[in-house]
Design a protein around this nucleic acid. Structure first.
Lengths: 207, 207, 207, 207
DNA sequence: TATGAATGAGTTTTCATTCAT
DNA sequence: AATGAATGAAAACTCATTCAT
């Protein structure tokens, strides 16, 4: 907000230092949660001076946003690769494969995801998933438009919206919030069933 | 530390004052988000002394928890009433009715829900929905067990888990996060379709 | 300070209520120390309203002063009785008897003495012992003046001052601050020795 | 609570700043007593920001403890020097010299001693004298053990305990609590007499 | 006379941010 | 470019005291 008006000299910024800071932040977030995550902590964990942190990030919010963006980008990349690999399978199989991959990805980053999503008081701003979801949605849009050129844009948009919601929220639950006594594999099967049934029913309905 | 037990006199606490404080908190949360939500602000908004806030709530967390519980209870009540009213319809219709009711309820409380869920840094602790969802899930469990006494408990549990996830996450999106250009009614229809199709397919599969 | 100017209607004050308040204060002081000793606590412990406390004591300081005075008076009374009983013995024996009695008295009230003396931030104002000591010193003065009418007042005063200091500080240590592995009886003997030797030497010197 | 360990960066701490803070605290304590001794006042008196106080001391207690330790160390140092200087004199003379030195030291620091001992509500924790006394007692133990190797340890311990109690409490009275009309020199003489007589009597008794 | 709900000035403490070195 | 000592606004919370009932 106040940021754009602040004087900021043109300077060479070291990618390595930025990653060092971001890594330190992620480590602390996973280790202790947002409570007690201070910029001074971050500097100490990254083994640099606090002043250096502020050479690379205008303020704490910007730092957290950069962390969010980096995590989003990594996860997006991974999912897009999985989509590429699934393209040759038939829809029902592909959907299941992608869903498994999504749960895996969320599970791997569960700590950082849940820390950023549910502890950092930046509102939805700090959430990693919307960005990831937006990217993936883009692919789905193209895919559907390619397969069903007859559907109007708004309808495509609605399918994508519902589909993304279902896929991501189910995967998130299974990966991050699942209670220990529930069976991971069976939940994945059930959720994939829903997606498959739904896709098939809509394909039939609009055929 | 040395104080063995917090002093808390037995006393008559005024329901009106508690509601006044909770209302003020909700108003501030909706208006400005969690950032800047201080106990002093709350007292000022409620037009009482800061000491009074601490007469009724041991600390800020307890206050927020009370707000969460009140909102949860209200929403749960409303949904249970809707469930009662839907009991006589056939499944497909009932599901649609209930889903509409859920979206309505979430929409009505959207401000407080999203503020508590995504801005208060208490982790999932501050989220209203889990409590509501848990209550409703209880009903679904009973209902399914009644209609399908042959299903083992763990399977019922899985269906409920997936069903609740789908219903609540879809409804939450439509009510709270829907982008303005999307049509509310059509999204509700699509989401209800998913639920209906899924319920019918599982009924058929296990028949 | 501001107290004398405060309006205070002439009223009947119940001795029982005052003692109730003082007892409650003493109990809390012994139980939890000065930390956490609030007037509201005191009222709750005494099972009366906080307003009632302020009907009987202008402020917290006055309450504490009343407690100090009451404890002082009780201890003084007890010691004076012991002095009366020792009067017929010869000096060396009497001194030892009185010293034992002093240690006993301090030990009995150790909790309240140490709480008031070392935790209440009223400076020396809160200490019980000066008042007790002053009263006892008065007796000693009379006794010495009676036995040694030839000594000038200032000299009597000095003897009393030194004697009181030695007796009370030694007794206080033995009763309140003694480390557990030290033998109470032997310490009493040693301390009584000092007093006896000193008294005899001064008697001889001035003879 | 959730913060696993207090963040405390490894850093160069300026001795000058610490002393500045401690000096300011001592000044305020002497000037106004413990009442009204707030960390904010200390910062203002030291002419630094409140944050700086907390860079050097974790909390108010630690600050007060540091002040106590500094005062203790200074006084101990001084007394030990005096002991060294007295070692060549015969006992009666040495005792008197040391007692005078003790009264001097206490008198010099009377303000801070009485403030810390009788106003800071940390119990005996805040008292300067126990630490000083403990150090000096150590010397006496060694000295007695050297002169009277036949005495059992517990007996030495008792003599030291009684002797320290007498010396310190008498000196404290004379230095800090003496009423103005009493003659300092004569009180010192009387008190030194007690110590001398006692030492000689015990030497004779155990010879 | 007794009550106890309400008060708010005052306290400790935190931590994002600056800037002289 | 990097540093880290210093900062101080702001937050949570306490508790002696008042006063309407």
């Amino acid at each position: 907000m106040a940021r754009s008006a602040r004087y900021r000299p043109v300077q060479r910024r070291s990618r390595a230092t930025i990653d060092n800071i971001l890594d330190a932040t992620a480590r602390l977030l996973v280790r202790h949660g947002y409570q007690g995550l201070t910029t001074n902590h971050i500097a100490a964990e990254a083994d640099i001076g606090i002043g250096t942190v502020y050479r690379y990030f205008a303020d704490k919010n910007e730092l957290l946003a950069a962390l969010r963006d980096r995590a989003s980008a990594e996860m997006t990349q991974e999912l897009i690769k999985a989509i590429g690999a699934s393209l040759s399978f038939e829809p029902a199989v592909a959907v299941r494969q992608l869903f498994v991959c999504l749960v895996d990805a969320l599970e791997r980053d569960r700590a950082i995801i849940s820390a950023l999503a549910s502890e950092v008081p930046m509102g939805l701003q700090s959430n990693i998933l919307p960005a990831v979801e937006g990217q993936i949605a883009q692919f789905c849009r193209l895919f559907i438009a390619h397969r069903r050129p007859d559907l109007p844009d708004t309808e495509v948009e609605e399918y994508v919206y519902i589909g993304m919601t279902l896929a991501f929220s189910a995967a998130l639950r299974i990966a991050v919030e699942r209670e220990p006594q529930m069976d991971r594999q069976r939940l994945i099967d059930r959720a994939a069933d829903v997606l498959t049934v739904w896709i098939e029913s809509t394909a039939a309905a609009t055929a």
